[in-house]
Lab assay of single mutants.
Amino acid sequence: TTIHVGDLTLKYDNPKKAYEIAKKLAKKYNLTVTIKNGKITVT
Rank of each mutant, 00 (worst) to 15 (best):
T2H: 08
K17P: 01
I40S: 00
K24D: 07
T2N: 06
G6P: 04
K24Q: 12
H4G: 04
K24Y: 15
V42I: 14
N30E: 04
I21T: 07
T41G: 01
K16Q: 14
L10G: 03
T43Y: 12
V33E: 00
N37V: 06
T1A: 12
T9D: 06
I3C: 13
Y12K: 02
I21G: 03
N30H: 12
L25I: 15
L25G: 00
V5S: 05
D13K: 10
K11N: 12
T1Q: 07
E20Q: 12
N37C: 10
N14Q: 05
N37Q: 08
L31H: 02
L8D: 03
T43G: 14
G6Y: 09
L10H: 03
T2A: 07
P15F: 15
T43M: 12
D7R: 13
K36L: 14
T1D: 06
K27P: 01
N14S: 13
L25M: 06
K28N: 03
D7G: 15
A22P: 00
A26I: 03
Y29M: 04
T1K: 03
L31R: 01
K23H: 12
L10Q: 04
Y29P: 01
K27S: 10
P15C: 11
V5I: 15
L8S: 04
L25P: 00
T43K: 11
I35L: 07
E20V: 07
K28F: 08
K39L: 14
T34Q: 12
L8W: 07
N37A: 11
A26W: 05
T1N: 09
A22C: 09
T34Y: 09
K27Y: 09
G38A: 02
P15I: 13
Y12D: 02
I3L: 12
N30V: 02
K11L: 13
G6V: 07
T34R: 08
K16I: 13
A22F: 09
L8A: 05
T32D: 04
T32S: 11
D7Q: 14
T32C: 10
D13Y: 08
G6D: 05
K28T: 05
K24G: 07
K36D: 13
I3K: 01
K23I: 14
T2C: 12
N14R: 02
A18C: 11
K27L: 11
